[in-house]
Amino acid sequence: MKLIKLFFVVSLFFLAGFGQRLSFAEDNLSAGDIIARSRLAFYYAGDDGRARVTMELINKAGQKRVRELTMLRKDYAEGGEQKYFTYFYQPADVKDTTFMVYKYPDKDDDRWLFIPAINLVKRIAANDKYASFVGSDFTYEDISGRKPDEDTHGLLGKEQINGKNCFVVESMPKSAAEYTKRISWIEAENFLPLKEEFYDKQNELYRRFEAIEVKDISGIATITKRVMKNIKTGHRTEVAFQEVEYNLGIEDDVFSERYLRRPPLEWIR
């Protein structure tokens, strides 16, 4: 009897403790914390990663353009410096083109583009973070992330999306940005953004991001299908991530002029 009582007390203690931790996770996180953790979950998954990415750029009339690429990423500090290497398979006229980015948290990126037809490595200006990535509805900033302290964040509440508990966070840029307001639905369990809505100067909704498919890859929740739609133009970009892998031990020298000129075959196939 004593044993049962003890068991009961211990269970209660644990339950209470667990409950406390749960409520801590949900209640004591500020909107800024949520955005910061979301950025790590979305842009810094693993220490490095690789994915074969297919982007379909679809206009209002349904005409489709396709971008197919392999993207390699290596993180140098959690939430800090990263290097990206991109190799293009499609469209035909840019096949074998490579693109490399050194991303720094507090200054403009370094970017290089390799144009195979003239064997030219070209350094390109990088402060156009709101420019479209390869003609899609995603901006460079959408692809590589935005620092949390560039916006002020407020927690609007909690909502469910497809049965998943989400924090709803409103973010307002501190200085001029591509949007004037962003609302993010961030899944409470893994901090991935399941939906984002971007508002323009007229305070009208003009872009919407949605995660269509989330998969567990080596224990890391990963958005494998996503769509960005421009509400105003009707143009949308559907993106599928295939062959996603993390923690591959990608060597540092992959992100160098050598591999821009001669793509690293072991990584791009």
């Binding site: 390109i124 200006a125 990088a126 402060n127 156009d128 709101y130 420019a131 479209s132």
Partner: peptide, 10 residues
Amino acid sequence: YQKAFPSDFS
């Protein structure tokens, strides 16, 4: 010197 500006202008 090269610079990129918003809305795809450089």
